[in-house]
Design a protein around this nucleic acid. Structure first.
Length: 94
DNA sequence: CTTCTGACA
DNA sequence: TGTCAGGA
């Protein structure tokens, strides 16, 4: 049994560098998205961002929206609506 | 790894 | 406007 030698592994978190590689962009862009509120990675004591699998998936959505012709401001709106829509759906259909 | 600034398409 | 590059 792999008892996760590292507690971080069980959480499935990625450093900003690996997250950038996964989404196919640079660490500077990921930081730009966070500045726009597109993603909110957890911050460690050292101040380093820790991107979870969910965050990486969201980053991919951001790149897809950018390709769609949306800008960071527009993407932020889409992400907010999607988050609220998913929240309402999870809260209860009725 | 973080933050900021400069330049380019 | 968004991305890339360099420096502290």
């Amino acid at each position: 049994m792999v008892q996760s030698p590292d507690p971080e592994r069980a959480r499935g978190v990625f450093g900003i560098t690996v997250a950038a590689e996964l989404v196919g962009t640079g660490v500077q862009n990921l930081r730009a998205y966070e500045a726009r509120g597109l993603v909110e990675p957890v911050r460690t004591e050292g101040g380093t961002r820790r991107y979870s699998a969910e965050d990486v998936d969201r980053l991919r959505r951001i790149t897809a929206l950018l390709d769609a012709g949306l800008n960071l401001a527009g993407i932020a709106m889409v992400m907010d609506l999607q988050d609220e829509n998913d929240r309402l759906r999870r809260a209860g259909p009725g």
